[in-house]
């Protein structure tokens, strides 16, 4: 067995590697959705945006040979899809949730349709920073390969947390999400604020998709996302609408997702599928433990989920 040299140490190491690799799309989608939801809007369509971003990034990287141009185009596609969602939601008697699900199905379908020719060819991948240069053990070196986008994700989580607290723009986004009455009384154009916040949230999800197709797993196929976008939206609730906690939650989710392959790599193969469910069991458990029937979720933006 190739991990024999590491023994059981291989398990935490694989989980670390998983946290770094698997979590990146979660970070992008949840940080973006965090911004959107803080402005008082839910975008469930991010799953579709993620897939659409993955496809367009892969296609552009394949045709131009530049993976970073692919990332940029994925962000633009996300921006447009987000703006579309926000635009539709601003129409009278339109429901966030229904529109989000509709756009999710539309965008995934569109991505599968447009992405057919790109399933076989191999596009150039995004590079990674080798943080494991100091180690002689190949597994450690492999685990510490950190993609640039991972770093960008971490930085943007902190940047968003700072901006929400310390900038006029951040306060206005939060005001739009907390109380439409108060926002209108202060002359804040709630619709425009939400449009911008939703569009930016979509751009983040697009970049998350680019990571999927251009780095890990690093190819384009129809089963690429398998609900990661939806899961990231749930992470935002679990993280109580705080970008930094979104980051931690994403890392935790990535690590939990790596438990099963890590155990397999050290020879524990029993209950593979059971351990695959670890992230979901973890989420459910944490949700139940932190929920209260007596009061509303703390930190929930006041206007969120308001039925109009």
């Amino acid at each position: 067995m190739e991990n024999g040299g590491l023994g059981l140490w291989g398990v935490p190491l694989a989980m670390l590697a998983g946290a770094i690799r698997v979590s990146t799309p979660f970070i992008f989608v949840s940080v973006g959705e965090c911004l959107t939801e803080r402005s008082g809007r839910i975008n469930l369509g991010l799953e579709g945006t993620l897939v659409m971003g993955a496809m367009s990034a892969y296609a552009i990287a394949l045709t131009t040979g530049s993976p970073w141009l692919g990332v940029l185009v994925a962000a633009c596609v996300g921006l447009l899809l987000g703006a579309l969602h926000a635009g539709i939601c601003q129409l009278p008697r339109v429901n966030d949730i229904a529109t989000g699900i509709g756009l999710m199905l539309l965008a995934t379908g569109l991505a599968f349709f447009l992405g057919k020719p790109y399933i076989q060819p191999k596009a150039p991948n995004l590079g990674a920073i080798e943080l494991g240069w100091w180690s002689g053990i190949p597994q450690v070196r492999q685990a510490l390969q950190v993609n640039y986008l991972f770093v960008v994700g971490i930085v943007s989580a902190f940047a968003l947390a700072w901006a929400l607290k310390n900038t006029r723009w951040g306060l206005i986004v939060r005001l739009a999400g907390e109380s439409v009455d108060a926002a209108l009384a202060m002359g804040v154009p709630v619709g425009r604020v939400r449009l911008i916040a939703t569009a930016i949230g979509g751009a983040f999800a697009g970049v998350g998709g680019a990571f999927l197709s251009l780095y890990y797993p690093g190819s384009w196929n129809e089963g690429l996302s398998s609900g990661q976008g939806l899961m990231a939206v749930a992470l935002v609730i679990f993280a109580r609408w705080d970008p930094i906690r979104c980051l931690w939650a994403s890392l935790l989710f990535g690590a939990a997702g790596a438990i099963s392959p890590a155990l397999q790599s050290v020879g524990i193969t029993e209950g593979y599928y059971l351990f695959s469910a670890a992230p979901y069991v973890l989420t459910l458990g944490l949700m139940i433990a932190t929920c209260s029937p007596e009061r509303a979720l703390r930190g929930a933006p006041g206007e969120l989920g308001a039925v109009r």
């Binding site: 310390n166 006029r168 306060l171 939060r174 005001l175 907390e178 108060a182 929930a300 933006p301 006041g302």
Partner: peptide, 22 residues
């Protein structure tokens, strides 16, 4: 007042002219 914001944030927000970075 907006319940999820601190007293300080509420007061500053209600002011007329806000700097772009607070």
């Amino acid at each position: 007042l907006v319940p999820n914001m601190t007293v300080l944030e509420n007061f500053v927000l209600s002011r007329k002219h806000l700097p772009s970075v607070i």
